[in-house]
């Protein structure tokens, strides 16, 4: 007993020592310094997505302005915050308010104020979409991106610093994106039972909303059955992405994008905001720098052929900085 107690409290091999080290490692992992320019690029994509989303992709909230309030079914959030049923005026204000706030946020100015304004507007607009009897289950992780990316503060696309704040925000986005996969496998077990993998859920999805491209899948039923096993396996093992090398991490992200493209082709469902979240795993600032150098080169080419060199010159310092800044 006495020995056990001393083992808990003392020495490097003790339980507390181990716990301290694990917490320390977890803390270092959560706050791994990452490029501030990556956050700037991701924020730009997130805000651009918000505009496309409220105007084109997810418009059911807007139409709820026209639905009779008899169909309004407040969610917990609406009951707590006393949110009213939708009206045409309210949905118009939220839709165009989101667009204006996102455009302003894309300038990079007042990142917290504008970022959180976009977050409130977008969440409220989603709330209106979901409080008429149908919740889209793929749109929760994006709330984390909207809430936490502004915490980094000012971040420019050419910002060459690495920061712990950027690391934390990106890590939180990555974690919630992967939680979407992992916890959706749990939901399948909770609502569908372990036998979900052997059920005809995908057949049902294709029957109800299959694209013409997907009809042949019904003729070869084992394909959809097999797909359910692969999906469950992929979702359950999705957290493995955090221990993979950079190269394999990118491949896994690519694999998930292929999966989402296949799903879209088959049943015209895409988890759009979640796809933006998955970009947090990629070295976005390098792609942005590459794109900038191409643009400079293109513009230089128009100016009379000297631009190739100018483009390279513009691109290479960036590349060097980003590649070389792994060590602080």
């Amino acid at each position: 007993m006495g020995r056990a107690v001393s083992g808990v409290n003392g020495g490097p091999g003790s339980v507390t020592g181990l716990a301290d080290r694990s917490i320390g490692q977890l803390g270092r992992w959560l706050f791994t310094p990452m490029p501030v320019s990556r956050v700037a690029t991701l924020r730009l994509l997130v805000f651009a997505f918000v505009i496309v989303d409220v105007v084109l992709l997810h418009t059911s909230g807007w139409y709820h302005g026209y639905a009779d309030p008899v169909w309004y079914e407040p969610l917990v959030m609406g009951k707590v915050l006393h949110l009213p049923a939708a009206t045409v005026l309210l949905v118009q204000a939220l839709k165009w308010g989101c667009v204006l706030a996102a455009l302003a946020a894309m300038t990079g100015r007042a990142p917290r104020l504008l970022g959180w304004t976009v977050a409130i507007g977008w969440v409220w607009y989603q709330y209106i979409a979901f409080s008429y009897g149908k919740v889209d289950h793929d749109r929760a992780d994006f709330v984390v991106a909207l809430a936490l990316l502004p915490t980094v503060g000012l971040a420019h696309l050419s910002d060459q610093r690495r920061s712990e704040a950027a690391g934390f925000a990106l890590r939180a986005v990555q974690l919630s994106a992967i939680a979407t996969y992992f916890l959706s496998s749990w939901a399948k077990v909770r609502f569908g039972g372990w036998d979900w993998v052997n059920s005809a859920t995908m057949v049902r999805a294709v029957v109800r909303r299959g694209s013409p491209m997907a009809q042949w899948l019904l003729e070869v039923p084992w394909t959809l059955h097999w797909f359910q096993w692969v999906l469950m396996g992929a979702e359950l093992t999705s957290p493995v992405i955090f221990v993979l090398s950079e190269k394999w991490r990118r491949r896994v992200v690519g694999g998930w994008f292929v999966f989402h493209a296949m799903t879209y082709a088959a049943i015209t469902i895409a988890f759009w905001p979640h796809l933006v979240m998955m970009l947090a795993f990629l070295p976005l600032e390098r792609y942005a720098a590459w794109l900038r150098s191409r643009l400079v080169r293109l513009r230089g080419g128009d100016d009379g052929g000297e631009g190739g060199g100018a483009g390279d010159a513009a691109a290479s310092p960036d590349s060097r900085v980003f590649e070389g800044s792994a060590t602080p």
Partner: peptide, 9 residues
């Protein structure tokens, strides 16, 4: 819960 396509058919 993230229950997209989670019911058994």
């Amino acid at each position: 819960p993230w229950r997209m396509f989670s019911t058994s058919q």
